[in-house]
Amino acid sequence: KKSYVLIKVKNPKTKETHTIVVPEENLEEVLKALASQPNVKVVDIERFP
């Protein structure tokens, strides 16, 4: 059974918020990819039960 993680990201320029759902096993690479985006800020990470 896969567990999923909900990542909320915000664009500081446009103030838009997006929610991305990723499998927990991919969380680290997704966070690394997001960290390299200049106008993306991770605001929240939630685990799915």
Rank of each mutant, 00 (worst) to 15 (best):
Leu31Phe: 02
Glu29Thr: 10
Thr14Asp: 04
Glu24Ser: 07
Glu29Gln: 14
Ile20Ala: 01
Lys15Glu: 14
Lys8Leu: 07
Pro38Leu: 07
Ala33Trp: 12
Glu25Tyr: 05
Glu25Asn: 05
Thr17Val: 13
Arg47Gln: 06
Lys2Gln: 14
Pro12Trp: 15
Glu46Pro: 01
Ile45Asp: 01
Tyr4Cys: 11
Pro23Tyr: 14
Leu31Val: 03
Asn26Ile: 09
Leu31Ile: 04
Glu16His: 06
Leu31Trp: 02
Asn26Leu: 08
Ser36Met: 12
Ala33Tyr: 14
Val30Ile: 11
Leu31Met: 07
Leu31Pro: 00
Leu34Arg: 00
Ile20Met: 08
Asn26Arg: 14
Val43Pro: 00
Asp44Glu: 13
Lys1Met: 12
Glu16Leu: 05
Lys1Trp: 15
Pro23Phe: 15
Glu25Asp: 09
Val40Cys: 13
Val22Asn: 00
Ala33Asn: 10
Asn11Asp: 10
Glu24Pro: 04
Pro12Ala: 14
Glu16Gln: 07
Lys32Asp: 05
Lys15Ile: 03
Asp44Gly: 13
Leu27Gln: 02
Val22Pro: 00
Lys32Pro: 00
Val22Gly: 01
Val9Ser: 01
Pro49Gly: 05
Val22His: 02
Lys41Val: 15
Lys15Cys: 15
Val30Cys: 06
Glu28Tyr: 07
Lys13Met: 14
Asn26Thr: 08
Val30Asn: 01
Glu46Thr: 14
Pro12Thr: 15
Glu28Val: 10
Val9Leu: 15
Pro23Trp: 15
Glu24Lys: 05
Lys10Cys: 15
Asn11Glu: 03
Lys10Asp: 06
Leu31Cys: 03
Thr14His: 05
Pro49Thr: 12
Glu46Asp: 08
Glu46Cys: 15
Ile45Glu: 01
Phe48Asn: 07
Glu28His: 11
Pro38Thr: 09
Ser3Arg: 08
Lys1Asn: 12
Glu24Phe: 09
Leu27Ile: 05
Pro12Met: 15
Gln37Thr: 10
Leu27Val: 06
Val40Leu: 12
Lys1Ile: 13
Lys13Leu: 14
His18Glu: 07
Asn11His: 06
Lys10Arg: 12
Phe48Cys: 14
Asn26Asp: 12
Val30Asp: 00
Lys41Glu: 14
Ile20Glu: 01
Ile20Pro: 00
Val5Arg: 02
Leu31Glu: 01
Leu6Trp: 11
Ile45Leu: 04
Val43Cys: 06
Lys32Ser: 10
Leu27Pro: 00
Val21Trp: 14
Leu6Gln: 09
Thr14Arg: 05
Glu29Ser: 13
Thr14Leu: 03
Leu31Ala: 01
Pro49Phe: 05
Asn26Met: 11
Ile20Lys: 02
Asn39Gln: 05
Gln37Met: 09
Lys8Gln: 05
Pro12Lys: 13
Pro38Arg: 03
His18Ala: 08
Lys2Val: 15
Gln37Arg: 12
Lys32Ile: 07
Gln37Leu: 09
Lys8Met: 07
Ala35Thr: 08
Tyr4Phe: 09
Phe48Thr: 05
Lys41Pro: 02
Ile7Leu: 04
Val30Leu: 06
Pro12Ile: 15
Ala35Arg: 10
Glu46Ala: 13
Leu27Lys: 02
Val30Met: 12
Glu16Trp: 05
Lys10Ala: 12
Ile45Lys: 01
Leu6Arg: 14
Gln37Asn: 11
Arg47Asp: 06
Thr14Cys: 05
Ile20Gly: 00
Thr17Ile: 12
Glu29Trp: 12
Val42Cys: 04
Thr17Met: 10
Lys41Ile: 15
Lys1Pro: 14
Thr17Ser: 08
Glu29Asn: 12
Pro49Ile: 09
Asn39Val: 03
Thr14Lys: 05
Asn39Leu: 05
Lys2Met: 11
Phe48Met: 12
Phe48Gln: 06
Glu16Ile: 05
Lys10Asn: 13
Val21Ser: 05
Lys41Phe: 11
Lys13Gln: 15
Glu46Gln: 13
Val43Leu: 08
Val43Ser: 03
Ile45Pro: 01
Val43Trp: 02
Val30Ala: 10
Thr17Asp: 04
Glu29Ile: 10
Pro12His: 15
Leu34Val: 03
Ala35Asp: 06
Glu16Asn: 04
Leu6Asn: 04
Ser3Gln: 12
Leu6Met: 09
Phe48Trp: 15
His18Gln: 06
Val5Pro: 00
Lys15Tyr: 09
Lys2Asp: 15
Thr19Asn: 10
Val22Phe: 02
Val40Met: 14
Pro49Lys: 05
Val40Thr: 10
Lys41Gln: 15
Lys10Gly: 04
Glu28Gly: 10
Lys2Trp: 08
Pro38Trp: 02
Glu24Tyr: 09
Ala35His: 11
Leu27Tyr: 04
Ile45Thr: 03
Val21Gln: 06
Lys8Pro: 00
Lys15Pro: 04
Phe48Ala: 06
Lys15Trp: 13
Leu34Glu: 00
Val21Asn: 03
Glu16Pro: 01
Ala33Phe: 13
Lys2Cys: 04
Lys13Ser: 12
Lys13Thr: 13
Arg47Val: 12
Val9His: 02
Glu28Asp: 11
Thr19Ala: 08
Ser3Glu: 13
Ala33Ser: 10
Ile45Val: 08
Ala35Val: 05
Val21Gly: 02
Lys1Leu: 13
Phe48Ile: 14
Ala35Ser: 10
His18Phe: 15
Glu29Pro: 05
Leu27Met: 07
Glu46Val: 13
Lys10His: 15
Asn11Ile: 06
His18Lys: 11
Thr14Gln: 03
Tyr4Gly: 02
Glu46Leu: 13
Leu6Ser: 08
Ile7Thr: 00
Leu6Lys: 09
Pro23Leu: 14
Lys10Met: 14
Thr17Lys: 05
Pro38Val: 08
Ser36Trp: 05
Pro38Ser: 11
Thr19Arg: 10
Ile7Ser: 00
Tyr4Glu: 03
Glu28Phe: 10
Thr19Tyr: 10
Val5Ala: 06
Ala33Leu: 14
Ala33Met: 11
Thr19Glu: 07
Leu34Gly: 00
Thr17Phe: 11
Glu25Val: 05
Leu34Asp: 00
Glu24Thr: 09
Val30Glu: 04
Phe48Lys: 05
Glu46His: 12
Ala35Trp: 06
Arg47Pro: 14
Lys8Thr: 13
Thr14Ile: 02
Glu16Gly: 04
Lys8Asp: 01
Val42Lys: 01
Pro49Trp: 04
Leu34Phe: 06
Leu27Phe: 05
Lys41Ser: 10
Pro38Ile: 07
Lys10Phe: 15
Ile45Trp: 10
Lys32Glu: 09
Glu29His: 09
Ala33Gln: 12
Lys32Cys: 07
Lys13Ala: 11
Lys1Gly: 12
Asn26Tyr: 09
Lys15Met: 13
Asp44Met: 10
Ser36Asp: 09
Ser36Phe: 09
Glu25Lys: 05
Leu34Cys: 02
Val42Glu: 01
Val42Tyr: 02
Glu24Asp: 06
Val5Ser: 02
Ala35Asn: 06
Pro23Arg: 09
Phe48Val: 12
Val30Tyr: 07
Lys10Ser: 13
Lys13Cys: 11
Ser36Glu: 10
Asn39Ala: 06
Lys2Gly: 15
Thr14Gly: 03
Asn26Glu: 09
Glu24Ile: 08
Pro49Asn: 06
Gln37Gly: 04
Asp44Lys: 09
Asn26Phe: 06
Ile20Trp: 08
